[in-house]
């Protein structure tokens, strides 16, 4: 069975991806996920956002466990 991860996109990232929720085959690491997403959604090329695996925001690379929920969290500035 393929390993699937659940993406939850917020703010402008959801707009660029075209949906707030997406299932994806697990690319294994956050770095690989970033690459996959930028390849599939060229609008993300220069976008800055954070990754949270199972609701923990991580800097740098990390392994993505099977079945994980990965949130894509861009900064907001409005007030």
């Amino acid at each position: 069975m393929k390993q699937v991860i659940h993406l939850k996109a917020f703010g402008m990232i959801a707009e660029k991806i075209g949906t707030a929720e997406l299932e994806l085959e697990n690319p294994g690491t956050l770095a690989a996920l970033g690459e996959t997403l930028r390849g599939r959604f060229p609008d993300l090329q220069s976008a800055k956002f954070g990754f949270a695996i199972n609701k923990k925001l991580l800097q740098g690379d990390a392994e993505i466990p099977a079945g994980a929920e990965v949130a894509l969290l861009p900064p907001f500035s409005g007030g």
Binding site: A47, K48, G50, Q59, P75, S77, G78, G79
Partner: peptide, 20 residues
């Protein structure tokens, strides 16, 4: 710690540009 990379003004519009 949340957003180590500073976004440029043009990257993410504010309320004046997007509506709220």
């Amino acid at each position: 710690d949340v957003y180590p990379q500073m976004p440029a003004a043009s990257e993410i519009p504010n309320c004046a540009e997007t509506g709220v």
